[in-house]
Amino acid sequence: MNERITGTQLAGLLFSFVFPVLVIPAPGIMASFAKQNAWLAVLPGTLLAVLNIWVMTALSKRYPGLTILQYSEKIVGKWLGKALGLYFFYFWFSLASAAINEHSRFINTFLLPRTPPIVGVGTIILLAALAVYAGIEVIGRCNTFLMIFIFAFLLPLCILALNDANPERLKPVLAEGIVPVLQGGLPISANINQVFLLSWLIPFLHQRQKARKAAMYALLGIAGLIIIVDLLTVMVFGPITGKLTYSFLSLIQFVGIQGSFERLEALAVAIWVAGIFIKVSLCLFMLALCLSNVFGIRSYRDIVAPIALLSLIGAIWAFKTNTDFQQFETFSYPLWAILTQNVLPAALLCIDALKGNARPLLS
């Protein structure tokens, strides 16, 4: 693989794949279960992601230079490995379709209500497909610029929100026990553990020994900023946080109304669009890698166009109503994601160790 990214670019891609799209609805999702303890719901998923990063980097050390698709065939056999590759294709295709569909609904709700959904869907897929065709190096460089853009908007918004924050709304802590926190943490855990894409990106890393360190930095940034946003949202809105679909956006709108700034939600929308571009680009990239590996296609670039078209169709037909999407995001996807992103890599590592791979398990 001739394309290469740096450790900093890897950390940035992991961060942008998860955080910008997650931060808008996250406080509301967690508060609907954990209420004022929503910020604690980030912790179980973070701990699970730490374990997941360790598993994936351990596998990459056992099979240097190979993606999870390639070393799966060595661990469980050629045909079962290819079946697993098709399963991963379906998983990333479903995630891409859901993300693009949600993007369309978000843009139509807050930015372009009279614009046909196909315009928003088609535009983001076209831009992402062009980025994938240019290669992972180009996506990494684009993301470096977009991260500066995201932080330049995010940090002032959080500072402005402090003016209306009331710490008393965070009390009592764990009044109803740990169960609501775990319930609120399940959907967020599934999203945080999307750092699973590390298994695809490590072979493109210039210094592969830095993979674990880069991933941990990305995870720290994701978890830390989501906790900050959760705290601010709950301190401003209190008990109604769990009833807000796009809670962080509502926070920014409230700050704009209370202060001397207007249309601050445009900044939140800009953060969303930047994040969805990186997310869709990486999803298409992994879809192309999956199919090229399963069917022995020499270059993943040869199938970017049909995969983009397939994703367009999937995004349009994915969910008919907001209720369908909420059911998928809150209940169906988390369990499926944990099975795919956490259980499968751990199973591959255990099978490889049992087969007698000479490398120590705790490497």
Rank of each mutant, 00 (worst) to 15 (best):
Y87M: 11
Y87K: 00
Y90V: 11
F91H: 14
F91D: 08
S94D: 08
L95C: 10
L95H: 06
A96F: 03
A96M: 11
A98C: 05
A99C: 11
I100Y: 00
E102N: 13
H103L: 03
R105N: 09
R105Q: 08
F106K: 00
F106R: 03
F106L: 05
I107Y: 01
I107E: 02
I107M: 11
T109P: 00
L112A: 13
R114Y: 14
T115A: 11
P117R: 03
I118T: 15
V119Q: 11
V119M: 13
V121A: 11
G122A: 02
T123S: 12
I125P: 12
I125M: 03
I125C: 00
I125T: 03
L126Y: 06
L126D: 06
L127A: 11
L127M: 15
A128F: 11
A128T: 00
L130A: 13
L130C: 14
Y133N: 12
A134G: 06
A134W: 11
I136L: 10
V138G: 08
V138I: 12
I139L: 01
R141S: 02
C142F: 12
C142L: 15
N143W: 06
T144E: 15
T144V: 03
T144G: 07
F145A: 15
F145D: 03
F145T: 07
L146K: 06
L146D: 09
M147K: 13
I148L: 14
F149S: 06
I150F: 03
A152H: 01
A152W: 10
F153N: 08
F153S: 13
L154T: 01
L154H: 11
L154V: 07
L154N: 07
L154A: 13
L154R: 00
L155Y: 10
P156W: 09
L157S: 11
C158K: 09
C158H: 01
C158F: 10
C158A: 07
I159V: 12
I159D: 10
L160V: 00
A161V: 09
L162R: 14
L162Q: 09
N163D: 10
D164Q: 04
N166R: 12
P167C: 10
P167F: 14
E168Q: 11
E168R: 10
R169Q: 13
L170A: 04
K171W: 09
E176M: 01
I178D: 01
I178L: 08
I178T: 06
V179N: 06
P180G: 10
L182Q: 15
L182G: 13
Q183F: 05
Q183Y: 07
Q183I: 05
G184R: 08
G185C: 01
L186M: 15
P187A: 14
I188C: 13
S189K: 06
S189H: 04
S189F: 03
I192M: 05
N193R: 09
Q194M: 05
F196Y: 13
F196N: 02
F196L: 03
L197S: 10
W200Q: 09
L201V: 04
I202S: 00
I202M: 00
I202T: 01
I202E: 00
I202L: 01
P203V: 04
L205R: 01
L205S: 00
H206Y: 10
H206F: 15
H206S: 12
